[in-house]
Design a binder for these strands. Structure first.
Length: 398
DNA sequence: CGCTGTTTATCGAAAG
DNA sequence: CTTTCGATAAACAGCG
């Protein structure tokens, strides 16, 4: 049937002749997206030692860890070991060795990643385009989440999401059609995103997209390229009901688990089906699958964060959901409750709170990005040259 | 018509 | 090796 389908899927020598993103992605190392993890671990190490500095370095691009780290702050401040659990991962010694100073990150991200993934590089390209165009080490889901998070209202229209991404990551100024389609797909496909009908007073088309209140720590493992589990309805056939998967087995739930969705409470009101319309908000109730993976997943740092949203257990009620949702929808950007203000792992807020960490180049996409984003939003900074500076500069002066 | 959303399918890669 | 996740393509429905 779809004979045509697969065609060019990966054969787009868009730029740099990399056939498939493997190479382009090199950034954080597609191949070792885990790089995130190793680094995490690294950070955790640092953290342990009391490397306060770690807090900042995390803001680096190459390591989403930063984010993770921040989130830790949000959640559990920092117990020496706290971070570790969240990582749930392993850390290649080799990697850890990389973990030098703050700049170490750069080192890591520098040509390195290119190499890392460039393994199969069949491209003789003498020099790769500037890294400014490297694919950020974030999945679309992460990006969307970050975008939404950084918005004051905690919700954005599709177009705004596009904007945020393109503004921050030069990489996405190319092949827009391609990734935007992916973004759209992600929004619709992933239950962690909910569609909020746009307010009548707001012009423009399309609805607003927000995060499902329970999507809390989708990336608590610190890996922004891949979540442990995504909320997904069964691939089922037309039977949206799906359900079935008790998930329980999988869900052994480790502790909080949670993040993902509401695991159990499907009970009563929630129809087996997928979406629940809460006051106009579409909630796609996920089939509760909890983090199967995280073996250890101790009380995740965000644990409490989660319950912030998932009001204990009873949420799930459309209304409650609605409440939660609307809560974010409130226009009040920065001032919300100190805690309540979305402590997502991503919590850009957290990220933002991070002061500096803006080393040049790819050093700090995130925080830098956020700042940029912020400035973009903020009339005061109409000029987001900040980030421009960061990205625009020819990192490789050589 | 173009943008927004949804949905299906496929492939690669990571995780277990 | 099998699942699951993520990226990408693409067909298609709605809407302004």
């Amino acid at each position: 049937m779809l004979s045509a389908v697969k065609m060019e899927g990966h054969e787009h020598p868009d730029w740099s002749g990399s056939s498939y993103y493997g190479e382009t992605e090199c950034y954080a190392a597609a191949g070792n997206m885990n790089s995130g993890q190793p680094m995490n671990s690294m950070s955790s190490y640092m953290n342990a030692p009391g490397m306060a500095g770690a807090g900042h370095m995390n803001a680096h691009y190459a390591n989403p860890v930063g984010v993770n780290h921040s989130m830790m702050h949000a959640g559990v401040s920092q117990s020496p070991g706290a971070g570790i659990p969240g990582l749930g991962g392993a850390l290649p010694p080799s990697m850890s060795s990389i973990s030098p100073p703050p700049y170490g990150n750069m080192a890591v991200m520098s040509p390195v990643y290119g190499q890392a993934c460039g393994i199969r590089s069949r491209e003789p390209k003498p020099y790769r385009r500037s890294y400014t165009h490297a694919k950020p080490p974030y999945s679309y889901i992460s990006l969307i989440t970050m975008a939404i998070q950084q918005s004051g209202s905690k919700m954005l229209t599709l177009n705004e999401i596009y904007q945020w991404i393109t503004d921050l990551f030069p990489f996405y100024r190319q092949n827009q059609q391609r990734w935007q389609n992916s973004i759209r797909h992600s929004l619709s496909f992933n239950d962690c995103f909910i569609k909020v009908p746009r307010m009548p007073d707001k012009p423009g088309k399309g609805s607003f997209w927000a995060l499902h209140p329970d999507s809390g720590n989708m990336f608590e493992n610190g890996c922004y390229l891949r979540r442990q589990k995504r909320f997904r309805k069964i691939p089922g056939t037309g039977d949206k009901e799906a359900a079935g998967k008790p998930g329980s087995e999988v869900a052994s739930v480790t502790t909080s688990s949670a993040g993902s969705d509401s695991p159990h409470s499907s009970s009563a009101s929630s129809p087996p089906s997928a979406d629940v319309k809460a006051a106009g908000v579409d909630f796609k109730l996920p089939r509760g699958e909890l983090l199967p993976c995280s073996p250890v997943r101790v009380p995740s740092p965000l644990a409490h964060t989660q319950h912030l949203f998932s009001h204990h257990h009873h949420h799930h009620h459309p209304l409650l959901l609605h409440e939660a949702a609307t809560a974010h929808l409130k226009p009040d950007p920065y001032h919300q409750h100190p805690h309540y203000s979305f402590n997502h792992p991503f919590s850009i807020n957290n990220l933002m709170s991070e002061p500096p960490a803006q080393y040049g180049g790819y050093g700090c996409p995130v925080s830098g990005a956020l700042v940029a984003a912020k400035s973009a939003l903020d009339p005061a900074h109409a000029d987001n040259n900040y980030y421009r500076g960061v990205y625009a500069r020819p990192i490789m002066n050589s």
